[in-house]
């Protein structure tokens, strides 16, 4: 049974084989649809621009902010850049209130960014750490991984607070 199914798979095409392997017990048609949906669900990631909603990964009190301006770059902000944002969601008793305009450093971006050695790095989500105008973080903790490129951008304080450095 299994061998016959495998031979069928190879007839359908080698490129599909890996995807089919994940659900070998399933029917051929359904698993084919699944691979296709996986392939197309990958969104093209772009710059952090006006109206991008970012997660706040510190204990400043804000939960979600919306980018209203990138301070550098024509197309928008990338990993390590500073943005101006408006607080969209906040904890009831945090330092930062909803509706305030804040500055933030992009510590994680889903769009890939080149590194100094020519390789690239990308993250799971778009996340920001709120800072004041001088670049000092408002919160006292930073959650999740942050890139070591922040050192080049003079955000050493965020790096020291971070749990993991990637």
């Amino acid at each position: 049974m299994a061998t016959s199914l495998a031979s069928k798979c190879s007839r359908v095409g080698r490129s599909l084989f890996g995807g089919l392997g994940n659900s070998l017990s399933g029917l051929l048609n359904t698993s084919h649809d699944m691979t296709a949906s996986n392939f197309f669900s990958q969104q093209q990631r772009t710059f952090i621009q006006m109206r991008t909603v970012l997660k706040v990964v510190d204990n400043s009190g804000a939960k979600k902010v919306m980018c209203i301006q990138a301070l550098k770059g024509k197309k928008g902000a990338r990993l390590g850049d500073t943005i101006v944002a408006s607080v969209k969601e906040a904890m009831p008793n945090g330092k930062v209130k909803k509706g305030k305009v804040v500055y933030g450093v992009v510590v994680r971006a889903a769009m890939q960014r080149g590194r100094v050695d020519g390789s690239e790095v990308k993250f799971d989500d778009n996340a920001v750490v709120l800072v004041d105008k001088q670049g000092q973080p408002i919160g006292t903790r930073v959650f999740g991984p942050v890139p070591h490129e922040l050192r080049k951008k003079k955000h050493v304080k965020i790096l020291t607070l971070a749990e993991h450095i990637a």
Binding site: Q112, G118, S119, E120, V121, K122, D124, G144, P145, P147
Partner: peptide, 14 residues
């Protein structure tokens, strides 16, 4: 993976 090649993806659990 030689230096300068490829891409690395960092998941949220680092």
């Amino acid at each position: 993976v030689y230096p300068g090649h490829g891409i690395q993806f960092v998941r949220n659990d680092a």
